[in-house]
Amino acid sequence: MESRNSSRSCKNLFIAVVLMTGFSAIFYMYYEPSVNWLNCPAVPKHDDCGNICINGLKRPNQIQILNNTLMLNLTSFRHQLTQTEAASSQGDDLDTIILVWMWPFGHQFDLGLCSSMYDIHGCHLTVDKSQFNKAHGVLFHHRDIYGDLSNMPKLPRPPFQKWVWMNMESPSNTAIHSSLNNLFNLTSSYRKDSDIMVPYGRISENTGGKKHYEILHKNKLVCWIVSNWNPNTHRRTKYFAEFEKHISVETYGNHFNKRIGDEDYTDVMSSCKFYLSFENSVHKDYITEKLYRPLSLGTVPVVIGPPRENYEEFIPASAFIHVDDFKTPKGLADHLKCLDQNDDLYRQHFTWREHFIVRGGYFGLEHACRACDHIRRNKNYRVVNDLNSWFWG
């Protein structure tokens, strides 16, 4: 609205100036000033300087030149004003172009869902590399960047374009490329201190109002699905080795030769009272779908990961159980057995569901949409000087 009012005011002002200029020209042509204020060349004494200059303007060719000049300026201004008003009327609806340089892990996603999924408008996502020079931002997935950067753009980067570094793996599972410093303008990861933070999931307010949450029937006490097994570096494998001595655990996954397909995952997970949401590495903010998927299916997560305080930055304190709350794996096992025998205590882990719901993240799509929204709102210069120190530290 302000932009349109400004354009209208500018137009009115110019019309007023044009009218005054035309009036002045006519005035100078037909009015003979008695004061010698025009800077004319030396002329005979019997000739009035003002008359000579004014008479010059009265000549037909000079009047035509004056009229043509006024019309040319008016036409030019009207053209510029039309372009300005057109751009102003579109305003923020002009598309911001984000080029997804490589599909993350080769996983393709729908490029037209920013508005419907995240209420982000005015964004155009593309994988067409011929749009490189037009793109306002280019999204690069770290795990798909070659160490020698041979699959990165070869054309000079347009000065307005921002390169976005995307990564959702922890530092322990991410190779270091020394050549990435001073290359990117923005970061997008699970880290809260990223320029564009995209977590693996979110706890959002239940806008439908407070409601009673019904806990589904459970026929399993503790469950764990795991394929990536490394007893030498993973804290979770060492902890589990001691934990399972004191409590029965239903185990699934490639490591236990009992793979769970997507079609069976929901049924298995929702049938468990507790799930071992053990991260494969422990890093700040690294809280993955191993937490959010059980939460969404009504199972209480038992977590190994960053400290409890870090988890509580993302989810309610009562929504999960942290292994560090207990001195030993046996202490944790005894606590879970107690909750199994006391429904009232077990229900305390679901009181937050009366006010909140769980939303999962969408790998790749959400990064691209939120990168577009960030670039659209922030036009300032930005560069990541030392990506390696920031992420791997």
Rank of each mutant, 00 (worst) to 15 (best):
H234A: 05
Y362M: 09
A42V: 01
K258A: 03
F240M: 07
L81G: 07
P60K: 04
W229A: 08
L365C: 08
H246K: 06
H141N: 09
T237E: 08
Y200N: 08
S89G: 07
H374M: 01
D285R: 12
T207R: 06
M20I: 13
V302T: 11
K210L: 11
E366L: 01
D47L: 06
H46M: 12
K337D: 03
G253E: 08
A319E: 06
K134W: 04
S76M: 15
T96H: 06
Y239V: 10
K154H: 13
Y118E: 06
D264T: 14
F77Q: 08
E32I: 14
I176V: 08
A319V: 12
F105K: 14
P159R: 03
M117S: 04
H124K: 02
N73W: 09
L332M: 00
K58S: 08
F27I: 09
S170Q: 12
R143L: 15
E366Q: 01
R236W: 13
G201V: 14
H136R: 05
G201D: 15
V282S: 14
R4D: 05
L276Y: 09
H255W: 01
T251G: 00
T207L: 13
P329I: 05
C338F: 02
L365H: 11
E169D: 15
S277H: 13
F256N: 03
S116G: 10
S172Q: 06
R8W: 01
I357R: 15
A241C: 07
N151E: 12
K258Y: 03
H246S: 12
L38V: 02
